[in-house]
C-alpha cells in the first residue's frame, strides 16, 4: 500500500493469473478434496482477482501503473494455449480442456511480467522478490513431482510435468540474475 509505485508489476500477468485460477478451479464447489485445498483455491482466486481489481480501479495505483510499457497482448498467449488445450488433453470434456488450458497458460503467464522488467530495468526489491517467489512456487512443485514419481505407482502426468518444467525454464535467466544480484549484494538489473 505504501509503495503505491506499481511500476514494476505487470497488470497483464496478473490478469492472466486470474484467468488461470478461474479456469482451473471450476470444480471447487463440486469436488471437495480437503479443507486445505479449498481454502488455498479461495486464496489464489481472491488474491489474483483483488490485485487486478486494485490495479485497475485504485486511482493512486492506476496512475503509477506503467501501462505504456506493459503492452504485451494477452491473446498472443491465451489463444495458442486454448488451441493447444483443444488439441492435446487427456479427455475431451469442458472441465478437462479448461483445466488443461489453465496448465498451459500458467506456464507462460509470467512472460508479460518478464518483458516489463526488461523494459523498465528499474527492478525494485518488492517486485524482484515477488517474481522470484512466483517462480520458486512452480519449481518446488517439480521436486514434489519427482518424489511422487518414485513413491507412487502410475504417477505419470506429462501435461503438468512438461508445462511446469517450461514455466520454470522461463524463469531460468531471471533466477540467474536475481541470485547473482543477491550474492554480490548489488541491485537487480536484467540485460536489455
Amino acid at each position: 500500500r505504501k509503495n503505491t509505485n506499481k511500476r514494476g508489476v505487470s497488470l497483464k500477468t496478473q490478469e492472466l493469473y486470474a484467468l488461470v485460477f478461474a479456469t482451473r478451479y471450476l470444480d471447487m464447489f463440486t469436488d471437495f478434496i480437503s479443507l486445505y485445498n479449498t481454502v488455498m483455491k479461495l486464496i489464489f482466486l481472491s488474491s489474483s482477482f483483488s490485485i487486478v481489481w486494485y490495479m485497475r480501479r485504485h486511482k493512486l495505483v492506476r496512475r503509477s501503473y506503467d501501462k505504456d510499457h506493459d503492452t504485451f497482448r494477452h491473446q498472443f498467449l491465451v489463444l495458442p494455449c486454448l488451441i493447444l488445450a483443444l488439441l492435446i488433453h487427456e479427455q475431451f470434456t469442458f472441465k478437462e480442456v479448461m483445466w488443461t488450458f489453465s496448465i498451459y497458460l500458467e506456464a507462460v503467464a509470467i512472460l508479460p511480467q518478464l518483458v516489463l522488467l526488461q523494459r523498465t530495468r528499474n527492478i525494485d526489491n518488492l517486485t524482484g522478490q515477488y517474481v522470484f517467489f512466483l517462480g520458486a512456487y512452480r519449481s518446488l512443485y517439480i521436486l514434489n513431482w519427482i518424489y511422487r514419481y518414485f513413491t507412487e505407482p502410475h504417477y505419470v502426468h506429462w501435461i503438468t510435468w512438461i508445462s511446469g518444467f517450461v514455466q520454470t525454464l522461463l524463469y531460468a535467466d531471471f533466477f540467474y540474475y536475481y541470485l547473482n544480484s543477491w550474492k554480490n549484494n548489488v541491485k537487480l538489473t536484467l540485460p536489455a
Binding site: D27, D31, I33, S34, N37, M40, K41, F44, H89, E90, Q91, T93, K95, E96, W99, T100, I103, Y141, N144, H157, I159, T160
Partner: peptide, 10 residues
Amino acid sequence: PASESVKDEL
C-alpha cells in the same frame, strides 16, 4: 483424466 488425478494439487 489429469484434472482428476492431480486434483489434490493447486
